[in-house]
Design a protein around this nucleic acid. Structure first.
Lengths: 334, 334
DNA sequence: GTGAAAGCGCTAACAA
DNA sequence: TTGTTAGCGCTTTCAC
């Protein structure tokens, strides 16, 4: 691989001039041409490592997610990757398995590699990432907020999605609509539960037992459904707060020999692979791709010097921006 | 962030000595202790960039996959990530969308970042990756082979899986067993089709129309099933060569109002999220995680100097090693 | 076994 | 505008 010196020699200029040409600083056109030719002939490509060592910033962006096998996060990754790639950055995917120790480990990688910024789907409050903000590296939280107010956030309109998912149940003529959501500690689980509660109270109401807190896993959905069906007055419609719960519910229904539609199911999330409409099933898509793409754009802007106040962007189920404002802000109610 | 000079000053030694301590070269114990203390006090961490610039190799491994949203590849990534992380390397995920232009782009990233080796799931023959082999960077192909014989390969026992999936159909009392597989150009699609053909011929035989070449997509499965059901003598059992095809088949069956079991379905692949056994459905797992993990181990060994002849490792559906030999080799028949 | 010194390939002062 | 020079933080000869 040719170096900047060889190019300089070949073009009869100094290395600094070559550097200027590469970086777009003003150079006399005649020289510029010579340099470009030399670059082409020698197939020169700047060494990113040397540049990063010198400038203390690399053309990478880290995406930290808790679960690489969760389709929500991979779709998000894909959206982010597309944007970063087009901007000439590569995306480093960091999978934490929801373990704060791994989060810390990746924070060190980000520092060591001079990664200028990161998109983070925090598992808990995202405490380990404060170190990055301290160093002035911009951070965009996705899916859930980070405790630290210096980070931007790109979120789904969870409350609104849950309202839509619940409305659909009543549109289907259901009157006993229950909700299965994630753990109380998880922002999205809480917000979706609140959306359900609000809409259900506007209609028929629902007893407390109709709200089940479980975890965002298939098994959680299965267990929760069984629990609901054991009630003296079981629900006839279920709002599932994420796709894994929904799959658990579907599996349990199939297992119990119930036809789809015996109990209607609506989901505040996208169901990967579900391509044909199924009777008795409704999904309110989670704009995961768009969240990733938007977060990447926001992060790139920050890296390129955008110093406006940290903001929270909320995307609805079509991926459109519902609100975008400096935080603290509460999510719009619908 | 402290530098090696500050540590040296603090410990009263030269930077070279600090470097030796970090890299495990022999140093007088007394000095070693002082250096270690200084490192601890200053919270020193070596700059990977500077080291990579100097040594021309970084502690990263690239994983190049065609589709980040395909659960086979994400499971593979997870297996690889675990192994690489434990070895102190970070995994850079490169998503190519099956586009050779992107493959080439990532080859350049790998070169520029001095990534010492890569795990590659090639889309076509993987021609762009030859450049890496030319430079002496080890390469491990996963899922499909790479045309270049210098690369190692870790593959699933596709032929054997298809035989198992087909056997299950006959065990269910089926006599007209068809196969839906991927494109002819894709190794795994061909091998799985061959396994089906071999087993079916050992039993009842099957007309040519019972083998449908489509693509590894949900829509492909749906189309292929419709095509099969339009035959004068339609099959009563389907072997699907991958999970996306299987989902397409399931969706089409549901759409046609067929109960599961009207037509039995067996799949040479894992069905993500399918947690409860469904009647009339059988899966022969694809050991994606193990493929990723094994490929990572193999690659790390190469990076650390293993120069034995390039090999092909074949894993069965439990993840066990069926064969491991210098290639060229043909896959064992069962 | 240890230190001094010379780079790895680049950029950013500073001069010219 | 352009060239000279001095590093970024590390490793690695080469002397001692």
């Amino acid at each position: 691989m040719a170096t900047i010196y060889e190019v300089a020699a070949h073009a009869g200029v100094s290395p600094a001039t070559v550097s200027r040409v590469i970086n777009g600083t003003a150079v006399r056109p005649a020289l510029e041409t010579r340099v470009q030719e030399a670059i082409a002939i020698l197939e020169y490509r700047p060494s990113k490592r040397a540049r990063a060592l010198r400038t203390k910033r690399s053309e990478m962006i880290a995406l930290v997610i808790p679960d690489l096998e969760n389709s929500f996060f991979t779709a998000l990754a894909r959206g982010a990757e597309r944007v970063t790639r087009e901007a000439g950055y590569s995306l480093v995917l960091c999978n934490t398995d929801g373990d704060p120790a791994y989060e810390t480990a990746y924070v060190e990688v980000i520092q060591d590699e001079h990664v200028p910024g990161a998109i983070v789907a925090p598992y808990g409050g995202g405490a380990p990432f404060a170190a990055l903000l301290d160093e002035g590296r911009p951070l965009v939280a996705v899916d859930c907020r980070i405790a630290d107010p210096r980070a931007d956030a790109v979120l789904a309109a969870n409350h609104a999605s849950a309202v839509l998912a619940t409305q659909w149940q009543f549109d289907q003529g259901r009157s006993r609509v229950a909700c299965i959501t994630g753990q109380r500690e998880v922002d999205t689980a809480r917000e979706r539960a609140e959306g359900w509660r609000e809409e259900v109270d506007r209609r028929t109401g629902a007893p407390d037992e109709y709200l089940v807190w479980t975890d965002y896993q298939v098994a959680g959905g299965t267990r929760a459904l069984e629990q609901l069906l054991d009630l003296p007055n079981p629900p006839d419609g279920i709002v599932a707060a994420n796709h894994l719960i929904a799959i658990g519910v579907l599996a349990a229904l199939a297992h119990l020999g119930m036809k789809p539609g015996d109990i209607t199911l609506s989901v505040c999330d996208s169901l990967p692979y579900l391509t044909v409409p199924l009777p008795g099933l409704h999904t309110v898509p989670n704009p995961s791709r768009e969240i990733g793409a938007h977060a990447a754009r926001l992060l790139l802007a920050r890296i390129h010097g955008d110093t406006s106040p940290p903001r929270t962007v909320v995307l609805d189920s079509t991926g459109a921006i519902v609100s975008s404002a400096a935080h603290p802000t509460t999510q719009p109610v619908s």
